[in-house]
């Protein structure tokens, strides 16, 4: 899949060349494409005069970067301590079963990606699940099914 490389070029043009710019640039690239495409890595490496391997070193170190396209909505199931004690493992397993994907995977229709996260910082609402930017508290298996249905409907609506 080829990408619109001019978008990467304009991100590079808008960014400074000073110290510590690499991670913000990669974050901007990911915001644009939803992941960091290989062509973008090559383009950034050439412009900033660094080796692509150093960029991959960073991309694979930080859990927020993706090297593959993601689903339209990312379901993030919190696995923090409070959520764990309140049964979040079962919730994650349930999402995994219902969507037919493992942690980190994307559904075939491209609607959902599933992700476990360390802590979303809303421990009072445990177990917490975030779909896109929306947060949901006290999620159990029934509520998980509802969330899948609601967001799938939303995806179909906007198509």
């Amino acid at each position: 899949m080829s990408i619109d490389i001019t978008k990467v070029e304009s991100i590079l043009a808008a960014s400074g060349r000073g110290k510590g710019v690499l991670i913000p640039i990669l974050q901007a690239v990911q915001n644009e494409f939803g992941y960091v495409p290989r062509e973008a890595v090559d383009c950034v490496a050439e412009t900033l005069d660094v080796f692509p391997v150093d960029i991959y070193g960073i991309l694979t170190f930080y859990s927020q970067f993706y090297l593959e396209p993601r689903g339209r909505y990312t379901i993030r199931v919190c696995q923090g301590t409070a959520c764990h004690v309140m049964g979040s493992k079962e919730v994650l397993d349930h999402f995994s079963r219902q969507l037919g994907i493992e942690d980190g995977g994307t559904t075939e229709d491209g609607v959902f990606s599933l992700e476990r996260v360390a802590c979303l910082g809303c421990c009072g609402m445990a177990p917490v699940v975030a779909v896109g930017e929306e947060f949901y508290g006290a999620v159990d298996m029934t509520k998980a099914d509802e969330l899948i249905a609601t967001w799938r409907a939303k995806a179909e609506e906007s198509e």
Partner: peptide, 11 residues
């Protein structure tokens, strides 16, 4: 960078 799962005072 409040990363401890179970802490949310900084947020």
């Amino acid at each position: 960078d409040e990363g401890d799962p179970g802490a949310f005072m900084d947020r």
